[in-house]
């Protein structure tokens, strides 16, 4: 996998205090990467170092194969800052035209691209209004439009849905998925773990300026798929059959006529065998639900017990 972002032992020290302390991570080409951590973990400082806004105190950082201090590298980046403050005296179109010119787009391309991205973020027909009259959600959409305006190879989105309603969040998710489809890498910094779960190929957990773990969701859960199973009755034979196929983590028989089980299977292709076993033992199957790894549980566990976290796929 060629790296879009690669940092090695990256450090930033402010007045003797390390905000980012030996951070190493890798983001691949065209990958949607979730960057997770509690407040004060050094996420924003890391993003700023990746954009050349803050100078590292130590370590190495390479973005798109070069230094973020190089304008040629930054020409291929898009950025939606968490604090989306823009020149409110401009109209939406003027704002995007200014950013298009800054990014080096030709005048003709700016003229065609601005209405395209305005429509893509749901601001079609609002481009001639002053940004000062935009709601917070509209400003965030305008910032997102600016981030994708110059057809970047890598987009940094810092809390991109913090001011958006549920419809806006779905739209942003669709934009991220469309970017992935176009081969654009996305570095997503978000507190909304469900959002990260839905769109990210890989995630990294950071705390106190260090990466605790990084990898795909599957890798982070050790390759286990949690499966929720509900049957009408759980005989000893069925239980033994299921135990041969999966690790039985929990059984709940408190509801009359129902037995709920939590199973962990090593591979998804075991799921049909589970259904076959239940059927062969004469039980009626009400639920067989393979769950995605629960990022929130993993996040809380890691933040509470970081020392117990094994490093996964460390760069």
């Amino acid at each position: 996998m060629s790296a879009t972002i690669e940092t090695r032992e990256l450090r930033k020290v402010y007045r003797g205090r390390a905000v980012v302390d030996g951070l190493s991570l890798t983001v691949g080409e065209g990958e949607v990467f979730g960057f997770l951590g509690p407040n004060g973990a050094g996420k924003s400082t890391t993003v700023k170092m990746l954009l050349g806004l803050v100078r590292p105190s130590g370590g190495e950082v390479r973005v798109l194969g070069g230094s973020p201090d190089d304008p040629g590298v930054r020409a291929q980046l898009g950025f939606l800052p968490e604090q989306f403050r823009f020149q409110t005296w401009m109209t939406g179109e003027e704002f995007l035209t200014f950013h298009g010119r800054l990014a080096g787009l030709a005048a003709a391309e700016v003229r065609t691209r601005v209405p395209e991205v305005l429509a893509r973020v749901g601001l079609a027909g609002r481009g001639r209004e002053a940004l000062g009259g935009y709601s917070k959600g509209m400003l965030q959409r305008a910032g997102l439009a600016a981030a994708i305006l110059a057809r970047p190879r890598l987009v940094f989105l810092d809390e991109p849905t913090s001011a958006l309603d549920p419809i806006g969040r779905v739209e942003v998710r669709e934009i991220i998925e469309a970017l992935r489809g176009e081969g654009v890498a996305v570095f997503l910094n978000s507190h909304l773990l469900a959002e990260v779960e839905q769109v990210c190929d890989r995630v990294a957990f950071v705390k106190a300026g260090r990466v605790l773990r990084q990898g795909t969701l599957r890798e982070l859960t050790g390759g286990v798929v949690p499966v929720e199973v509900v049957v009408d009755t759980l005989s000893a034979e069925l239980r033994a059959a299921l135990a041969r196929l999966a690790e039985v983590r929990h059984i709940d028989e408190n509801v009359p006529g129902r037995a709920a089980l939590e199973l962990w299977v090593g591979r998804e292709d075991i799921l049909p065998a589970l259904a076959d076993a239940i059927h062969e033992h004469g039980a009626r199957l009400y639920t067989l639900n393979p769950r995605r790894p629960d990022l929130e549980t993993m996040f809380l566990d890691l933040m509470d017990h970081p020392a117990s976290a094994p490093e996964v796929a460390r760069a």
């Binding site: 050349g52 806004l53 020409a75 950025f79 800052p81 403050r85 823009f86 950013h99 080096g104």
Partner: peptide
């Protein structure tokens, strides 16, 4: 101070 600079300097301008 108001944060406008971040989005400007993330562009290819020295």
């Amino acid at each position: 101070e108001n944060g406008v600079m971040q989005s400007v300097l993330a562009r290819p301008i020295r």
